[in-house]
């Protein structure tokens, strides 16, 4: 019951940002689908002359109209990641509500897990669901030629997952008590490196693997720091 109450509180606190992200993606996404017949793809840098043939046959990198939403999807995802982490891990320091939350009969690990669950749910319920809606619209309702392949949806999922990497990095930066220009900056630097390495591999499996590893690298110290942080 207490976990549910905590989850409800966390979701409610994230809700304005989640709704804002969903709204922006919905409006701009559909506008792009309706007004932009140009077919583009999410990973344009893979389309160099040498790799073109391989990429054309690769399962993740086929051009489609819905994929043109990719750029805005990535941007919104990164912004949502930063916004949620600031709301969950920095804002309570500003409002001085950490003590009100943490003195309760609940472990810090549980609080941490509930916060992460709320953030992931925020991503799933907002931009992932809108992305799925856009994808389904382009498959079933719109008359695109060629119709988007199912793997395009995975491309979107990959872009959304980058937002979670930013979420973990920004959360770690918020929880760290070092000066902002020292250790606190490391997670942010790591995100830029991570984004490069996540997009670099030519196979989808490796793309997702790099993303997962980046999240893990950030989540472990975040958990450790949150457990030991003095509030």
């Amino acid at each position: 019951m207490k976990y549910l109450a905590l989850l409800r509180k966390e979701i409610r606190e994230c809700l304005p940002w989640v709704l804002l992200a969903a709204g922006i993606l919905f409006v701009f996404g559909f506008q792009m689908l309706l007004n932009n017949p140009i077919q583009s793809i999410i990973f344009p840098y893979h389309l160099d002359d040498q790799a073109n043939e391989t990429i054309e046959s690769a399962y993740l990198f086929r051009p489609s109209t819905v994929a043109s939403v990719g750029s805005i999807l990535l941007f919104i995802s990164l912004c949502l990641g930063a916004a949620l982490s600031i709301r969950q891990f920095w804002f309570p320091s500003f409002t001085r509500t950490w003590a009100f939350l943490l003195h309760r009969n609940i472990t810090r690990t549980a609080v941490f897990l509930v916060k992460i669950t709320a953030a992931v749910l925020g991503f799933v319920l907002s931009i992932l669901s809108i992305w799925t809606l856009l994808f389904l619209y382009s498959v079933f309702a719109a008359d695109y030629s060629p119709p988007p392949m199912p793997h395009v949806w995975l491309e979107g999922l990959f872009l959304i997952s980058q937002g979670l990497v930013v979420y973990f990095a920004s959360s770690l930066s918020s929880v760290l008590t070092a000066k902002w220009y020292t250790t606190r900056l490391f997670p942010v630097i790591f995100v830029f490196m991570s984004l490069y390495f996540c997009f670099y591999p030519k196979t989808p499996a490796l793309n997702f693997l790099c993303t997962g590893l980046s999240m893990l690298i950030l989540a472990l110290p975040l958990w450790q720091e949150f457990r030991n942080r003095q509030f």
């Binding site: 509180k9 409610r12 606190e13 409002t95 001085r96 509500t97 003590a99 009100f100 003195h103």
Partner: peptide, 9 residues
């Protein structure tokens, strides 16, 4: 807590 900081929303 000192200052009675509760969830404002």
């Amino acid at each position: 807590t000192e200052g009675h900081h509760l969830e404002r929303w």
